[in-house]
Design a protein around this nucleic acid. Sequence first.
RNA 1: CGGGCUGUGGCGCAGUUUGGCAGCGCGCCUGCUUUGGGAGCAGGAGGCCCCGGGUUCAAAUCCCGGCAGCCCGACCA
Length: 573
Amino acid sequence: MQLSKILLKTLRENPQDAEVESHRLLVRAGYIQKLASGIHTFLPLGLKILNNISDIIRLELDKDDVQEILMPVLQPVDIWEESGRSKHFGNELPAFLVEGRGGNFVLGPTHEEVVTKTVSQIAESFRNLPVSVFQIQTKFRDEARPRYGLLRTRELIMADAYSFDSSKSSMIETYSKINGTYARIFEKLNLNAVAVEAVSGAIGGDVNHEYMVPSPIGEDTFVKCQNCGYSANVEAAVHNGYGTKEEHSVDKNLEQVAKLEEVFTPGNGSIEEVSAQLGMDKSQLILAIAYTTEAGQIQIGLIPGDRHFRLQPGCTLLSDDDFAREKPLVKGFLGPIGKIDLGYKVIADLTLKQNRHHGFVIGADKENYHFAGALIGRDFEVSAFDSISVAQDGDMCQKCGQNLELIRAVEVAHTFQLGHKYSGVMSGATFLGQDGKLTPYYMGCYGIGVSRLVSVIAESFHDEKGLKWPLSVAPYSIHIVPLHMKKNKEVQDRIEDIVTLLASKNISFILDDRDLSPGVSFKDAELLGMPFILTVGGRSLERGVIELKNRHTNEITDIDFNNLEIIANKVLV
RNA sequence: CGGGCUGUGGCGCAGUUUGGCAGCGCGCCUGCUUUGGGAGCAGGAGGCCCCGGGUUCAAAUCCCGGCAGCCCGACCA
């Protein structure tokens, strides 16, 4: 391919609205163009990256008999009412709604409903199961805050797979197989993606994993135990409280030192305010949070004031209306004393077991007052200790007792065991079993953010000069820079030899046939980031060589032009 | 959805305070010269100064109202 024919304009200056390096480079190198916030065009080079990623995904899923289909973007709202998810529109599912003839539609933010309808019309018998399908398609989500180029967009390309099994054990088997496929895909993409336990959110289901690529531009954080390998998104991570690095001296005479006394704390009772009023560290305060469980029971969670509460899936925080109804609970001054007797369950974070240095400050259950010097077991009881605060760096691993590490990362994929979440509520999503009974499918779903991966790879592979695409996704393997080709017959001849060779070896390349000064060609080649840059110029031809630069290592190798085959060996490795 | 900043040729910006010819750099076009790391000279094209209303002899500039983009927060499959 000749560079002059590509729809491409490289920019010397950084676009004003790009905040991170991958975004700047993708725009400057002419891979993507923004149309509106979170909405982009893939230019020819960008589309090649995207297609190469898609091809890897296709190839690997196909190996595991996951079959490609293409579902509609436009989905009738009816099916979302059937699954019960239309209530999520605007909140967890910021969908684009469209009015149409004969009803309202949604621009597909995800496809569980559609695929359930699709497969249920075909797979009627256990003999048809298990079966898995996938598609690669644009999804629409009206993100509140698009960011970082392709990292968070309102229009995104996703590879989403769905599995249908006849039993739970078979579903688990399929789940594990497809997770293996995902691991292979990320390996081929040269990405170090870590599968972590996660919360399932609006997609639903119980067991689920996110694939995280550690990166400073990540919007997620996961914990990882370097000892036993336990890893989980902080939204789902459990821990055993402070780890070995954390000092927490317990006063030997705690029972004498800590005296329960009422203190005046006028205001809204916030942790900030009370710790300032009493001159105490936030960790000495206990934050009590009331929430309703999935079963409708009200519980009270206790965590240290310097930590964040981790709301369990299915639970919701008490609203002001709820507080008005639950008379014993005083918002802002909620405390644990006597709550078990009133029938509330009181769950204390495991950190509170360790951290009772001088007694805690707790809410006094009346406006403008707290108690100081409170001890668990003496002044109030708890129903249970559990891990209900968000993990912090250095916390203790619940599996092995070692310290957890916090890692910032980008979520590139998410897999779910859905079970009967959709098949159980949507009509006809059943198969006839060997026993002659109708049973709902055991489903799973699996999504990879294809367009997001372009940004993630760019962020992982670049330097100050430009991009450095891995061979597996690069638009072209070699970028040929001829110097003064128009004037130098020998350069022309050598280029012809090289082009013939590369074509015969099926090695893709672009040839910079523009008649520009060498500096511009070199800069563009580095910016565009093909894995190899081949320089053909008079100076090195006099020595009988051409120069092959590995863009990843920036190493330059002289290639004898009587032995051009070496290029193929270098590139095909 | 709250707070802040910004909208001026394709890109990056100045001009707005104090109203008075629409500017600069890069890029683009033509010609000549140049040629191993973003060349030089000469000539040229390209603008609804985000949109709407108002004040004024006169508005990119002042006033009112919108819209869009970016950042922080909230939210997030």
